[in-house]
Simulated assay, not measured.
Amino acid sequence: MGSTRVKIAIDAMGGDNAPDEIVAGAVRAHAELDVDVVLVGDPHQVEAALKHHTHSSDIEIVPSEGTVEMEEEPLVGLRRKPKASINVAMDLVKKKQADAVVSAGHSGAAMAAALLKLGRLKGIDRPAIGAVLPTLIAGKPVLILDVGANVDCRPKFLEQFALMGTIYSQYVLGNSEPKVGLLNIGEEPNKGNELAIQTHELLSANPAIPFIGNAEGRDVLSGHFDVIVCDGFAGNVLLKFAEAVGEVALQILREELPRGLHGKAGVTFLRPNLKRIKQRMDHAEHGGGLLLGVDGVCIISHGSSQAPTIFNAARLAKDAIDNTVLDRIRSSYDPTVAVRADS
């Protein structure tokens, strides 16, 4: 990108809290991340939401008509509503009028639109959604993929996920030698179903993947692994369970710490610590998942996303662009692809 500012197309109509929370997160991203923001949505609703914010006059609005509803089948909805906000946002990236898309709308529609409009990267059979979760080691998150794009997988798909996850972990999460694991029910290579056994063989034989073995459920948040690969069915269950555990833990802290006189006095002193705990555990702090494997940067956020999630999703998109993740994945399959020298 050189010195060119990153431009992010944000689906202002996607999600349970659209457009107000989406617009609020976009405005903050524009102000704090040094990025240009394009809000895609109903102009009247978006303009009304923008009026609540200062320093938003230079944010561009691109009109769209309607959204793909959660109960709609993704492909049917996309074809029936060609001017839906997610379609228009993807078109902006396809036409090089934006560098990335962020959407908290129908995740299946976002993935389908990315495949239809942007296509897959060469060498990638299936894209994967990568989600970043906190671990027991502060400052050392783990990347889980796939967390929902592919319910059924073949071993070679998981091998591709592992390679893309390795690149993302190295260049965005800052792990010079990431440790890759395969989600399984045991540590031994012969444990698990046929998919797991065959995938273990592929990962072990691929020198480009720093594979260290199987990861059991108890290992996922241990910090021992930097990347864990699995099919989208198991990954989505794992992601939503981890999010629920985080929310339960935070709620317990809120309820139990203030109990009694000592608790009420202690909360005042612990407030900075509690804020850091929330930042480590709250899924909103991570912004959503990067759809790895499509020919464009696409962040799929939670349907319940509020302003902080959208802000962090924009940050995630900017990190992927600044660290040329797409070019690095391309170059792993095609050595003739050049990666920007200053990355």
Rank of each mutant, 00 (worst) to 15 (best):
G289V: 07
S56P: 03
S332E: 02
T135C: 11
D342S: 14
P19C: 12
E187Q: 12
I137K: 15
L136F: 10
D125T: 05
A249H: 08
I129M: 14
V337D: 05
A234S: 13
E47A: 15
I86H: 00
E21N: 10
A114S: 15
V229Y: 00
V37N: 10
L195S: 01
Q198D: 11
D20I: 04
V23E: 09
N150V: 03
N184T: 03
A89C: 00
G41C: 07
V132L: 09
K96L: 08
G25R: 07
G181R: 10
V267W: 08
L257K: 09
S56V: 01
H286N: 05
A244S: 15
M164H: 08
K191A: 04
V132R: 04
V35I: 14
G296L: 13
V227L: 14
G232M: 02
V229T: 10
D295H: 15
G66L: 04
L143P: 01
L75Q: 10
I59W: 08
S222K: 03
S304V: 05
G192I: 02
P155M: 10
I10L: 14
I228K: 08
R340V: 02
I277R: 03
H200G: 06
P63M: 06
A89S: 09
M164I: 06
G130S: 07
R120S: 02
A26K: 06
L78R: 05
S169F: 07
S64Q: 03
T309M: 11
L133Y: 14
V37G: 09
L290H: 13
L195Q: 03
G260K: 12
P63H: 03
A114H: 05
R5N: 12
V68C: 04
